[in-house]
Simulated scan of single mutants.
Amino acid sequence: MPLTFTLDPPVTPALRDGVLGLWTDVTNAGGAVGFVAPVTPEEIRPELVRHLVQMAEGHTRLLVGHDEAGEVAATAFLTRNTHRLMTHWVWLYTVMVHPRHQGRGYGRDLLAAAADAARDIEGVEAVRLTCRGGLGLERFYASCGYKEVGRVPDAIRVAPGDDRDDIVMLLPLG
């Protein structure tokens, strides 16, 4: 059964806790979403709060995918670029699909819904994201229409002696 996507849902305690649980579970399953396993919800909470503040200030939008049980199963945050010469594209952050839902095409559905949301933002012509090298994520994003436009070797240190490339990907919306 497909996920149901909602852009800018009301931020309720259930939504907040659902996103926090998703972020924790994705990280602990090896997902590259800003942390390295193992993590607890309390370690992730401050970063989620930063995202929620950006949402309240109107800088960031949340796209949530709910499964058939109504649980938070996928998320992505879209953030306007605040540099006056770069307002024609948005950042896509914290792209996650719960491990129990992976392998069903939900990641592609999430990216398509994010592109649709970006198309509805006045003046936006592209979506930009970064991903951690070494996991094949760039191949997945490329299969969804993103193009690699930059790479910083060894920019992400996940552990001593384990540095990964920071890969910049771009999806033109035209």
Rank of each mutant, 00 (worst) to 15 (best):
M1E: 08
M1L: 11
L3R: 04
L7K: 05
L7I: 15
D8E: 15
P9I: 08
T12N: 04
A14G: 01
L15C: 09
R16T: 15
R16I: 12
D17K: 05
L22Q: 01
W23N: 00
T24W: 06
V26E: 05
V26I: 00
T27P: 07
G31L: 11
A32S: 09
G34Q: 07
G34C: 11
F35Q: 00
V36L: 06
A37L: 14
A37S: 12
V39P: 02
P41M: 14
P41E: 14
E42G: 12
E43S: 08
I44Y: 12
I44A: 00
R45G: 02
P46S: 06
P46T: 04
P46Q: 01
E47F: 13
H51D: 05
M55Q: 15
A56H: 13
A56V: 12
E57K: 06
E57N: 04
G58N: 12
H59R: 15
H59A: 07
T60C: 05
R61C: 06
L62K: 05
L63K: 14
H66G: 05
A69M: 04
A74R: 09
T75D: 02
F77A: 04
F77W: 15
T79W: 10
N81P: 09
W89L: 09
W89P: 13
V90E: 00
L92S: 07
Y93K: 07
Y93W: 12
T94N: 05
V95M: 08
M96S: 03
V97T: 03
H98Q: 01
P99Q: 03
P99Y: 02
P99V: 08
R100S: 11
R100D: 12
H101Q: 06
Q102C: 11
Q102Y: 11
G103E: 13
G103L: 10
R104L: 14
R104K: 08
G107F: 07
R108G: 02
R108C: 07
R108V: 07
R108K: 08
D109M: 11
A112C: 15
A114N: 08
A117E: 01
A118R: 14
R119D: 02
D120H: 09
D120L: 07
D120R: 08
E122L: 12
G123I: 09
V124P: 00
E125W: 13
V127K: 07
V127A: 07
R128S: 04
R128A: 02
L129W: 10
C131M: 14
R132Q: 01
G133K: 12
G134K: 02
G136R: 01
E138A: 00
F140V: 03
F140L: 02
Y141H: 00
A142H: 02
S143L: 02
Y146T: 04
Y146C: 03
Y146I: 09
Y146N: 03
V149F: 07
G150K: 11
V152M: 03
V152R: 06
P153S: 04
P153H: 09
P160G: 00
P160Y: 01
G161N: 03
G161Q: 05
D163T: 13
R164F: 06
D165N: 13
D165A: 13
D166T: 03
V168L: 15
V168S: 10
V168Q: 10
V168W: 14
L170W: 10
L171E: 04
P172M: 09
L173W: 07
L173C: 00
G174P: 15
